[in-house]
Design a protein around this nucleic acid. Structure first.
Lengths: 241, 241
DNA sequence: GTCTATAAAAAGATAGAC
DNA sequence: GTCTATCTTTTTATAGAC
C-alpha cells in the first residue's frame, strides 16, 4: 500500500521544519533558538508548528535523531570500502563530523543542561540510535586498539566520549571565524590534534619515514611564516573577540 | 591610607557573590543560571544584587575576570620553578585547568552566544586579561615548538584555541558523572589525549624507552580488563544518559 | 492543518520604603 | 545597602475561528 499523499506532504513539511531547527541549533544552540524564530524561518505560524511537534524539546529531539541517523549512514558508507584498518575508518568518521560542523549542520546541545537532557534521555528513538552508534563506534575503537593505532591505556569509553565531544568542539568555529584558513586546513588540523595530539606525530629528531604502526593523519603542510596569509593587525582572542 | 571598613565589607560581599556565580556558571552555564537563583544562594534579595552588579552579564563578566586572574596566577606559580621546558609548563597549566574543572569551578560560557559575547568583548578589564593570558601562553607554545615538543605545523593560534577549548570540554564532566574513575585518572587521560592524542605516545612496536625529544605525559597505568572496576550493567551513553 | 489572538509563566530589571 | 513588591519583556504554549 503506497503512502497516502497527505502523509507524504506532512513528512516533507516536517523535514523542512527539522532542517530549520537543525541549522538554528547548530548556529546558536538550544536555548537561544526560539520557537517564534523557527516558525518564521519555516514560513508558518507558530501554532501550526505545535501541531507537528508538541514542544520545543520535541523539535530539538527530532533534529538530534536525524543527525544520529545521518551519522549511522555515514558509518555504513565508510564500511562500504572493505578491508581498511579501523583507525582509517575512525579518521573518516571524524572527518565526516568536521565537514558537518563546518557546514553549520551539526546541532549542538548544551552538555550540562538539566530538563532537556532528561527529555532526550527519555526519548526511546533517540536513545536507541545513540546506543547503536556508540556500540558500532566502540567496535571500531576496540579494533583500532588491537591494531595498535589507538592507545590501549584508554578505555573505549574515554575514546568514544572524546570523539563525541569533538562534534561540539568550539575550536572549529573559532578558526572558521578567524577567516584565515581554508576549510580543508582547519579540518586537517583538528583531525591531527584529535588523533596525534598537540605534540604531533612521533617526530624522531631527524626526518624519519612514517612509522607504519601508526596510521598517521595526513598533515597538510602549511606555508612558511613569511608566506602565511595572516591578517596583520588581528590579535589572538580565543573567547569573545 | 587603609581601606575603609565599608569598602572591605563590600568587597567581601561581592566576592561571595562571585563565588556563587562562578559555581553556577560552572554547573549549568550562563543561560540556565538565573539571577533569582544567585540571589537565593548568596542569601540576599535580588534587588540588592543589582546594587552590586548592574546586570546578569556583569555578574558573568566578574566571574570570568576572576578565573582569568587565577589562570594568570597559576602561570606565575608554574614559572616559579626555573629552567623547566615549555612543554612541562604547558602540561602543568592544563593540569591546573583540569583540576579547576573537576572541582566544578571553571565557569563556562556558551561558545556561540551573541549578546553575551559582545558584552564580554566590550569589557576592557576582561579583554585585557584575556590578551595577557593569550600572549603569555602563546609564548610558551612557541617555545615548546622550538624545543620540538609541540607540532610545528600548527599555528600558535590553533594550539592556543585548543588549550582554551579544553577548559570547557564535556569529556571531563561525562567521565566524572560515570563515577567509575578517580579524579587523577580522568585528568591524566585528558592530558594525554590533549597532548599525545587518542593514538597515544609513539609506541614503537616493542617496548622502547621514552623518547627524550618528546616530554611524554605521564600515562597512569590502569588495571587490566579483568580487574578494572567497571559497573556491570551500565551502558555507554555519551549524551543525555 | 493553518491561521490570529491570547494566555501563562519565567526571568531580567526597578520602585520606593526603611 | 537591603528589603518587599512590582514592572516589563520574552518566550513557551494554547484557544478557537476557518
Amino acid at each position: 500500500m503506497p503512502t497516502p499523499l497527505r502523509e507524504r506532504v506532512r513528512l516533507l513539511r516536517e523535514e523542512a521544519i527539522v532542517d530549520v531547527v537543525n541549522r538554528l541549533l547548530a548556529d546558536k544552540g538550544y536555548e537561544f533558538m526560539t520557537v517564534d524564530e523557527v516558525a518564521a524561518e519555516v514560513g508558518m505560524a507558530k501554532a501550526s508548528l505545535y501541531k507537528h511537534f508538541p514542544s520545543k524539546e520535541a523539535l530539538a529531539a527530532a533534529a538530534m535523531v536525524r543527525v544520529l541517523e545521518r551519522a549511522l549512514a555515514a558509518m555504513d558508507e565508510i564500511e562500504r570500502a572493505p578491508g581498511r584498518p579501523a583507525i582509517t575508518r575512525l579518521h573518516e568518521m571524524l572527518r565526516w563530523t568536521m565537514r558537518t560542523m563546518y557546514a553549520g549542520q551539526m546541532p549542538t546541545l548544551p552538555a550540562q543542561n538539566s530538563d532537556l537532557r532528561s527529555v532526550l534521555g527519555a526519548d526511546k528513538v533517540y536513545m536507541n540510535l545513540l546506543l547503536r552508534l556508540s556500540e558500532r563506534l566502540g567496535g571500531w575503537i576496540a579494533e583500532a586498539q588491537r591494531e595498535g593505532s589507538i592507545a590501549t591505556q584508554l578505555p573505549v569509553e574515554v575514546v568514544l566520549f572524546t570523539l563525541f565531544a569533538r562534534a561540539c568542539d568550539p575550536v572549529l568555529p573559532l578558526l572558521k571565524a578567524s577567516g584565515q584558513y581554508s576549510a580543508e586546513q582547519i579540518q586537517d588540523w583538528l583531525l591531527q590534534t584529535c588523533f596525534s595530539g598537540l605534540s604531533g606525530p612521533p617526530a624522531t629528531a631527524a626526518p624519519a619515514p612514517d612509522t607504519p604502526a601508526r596510521a598517521a593523519v595526513k598533515t597538510t603542510d602549511r606555508p612558511g611564516p613569511a608566506a602565511r596569509p595572516r591578517r596583520p593587525g588581528r590579535k589572538v582572542s580565543p573567547a569573545a573577540g
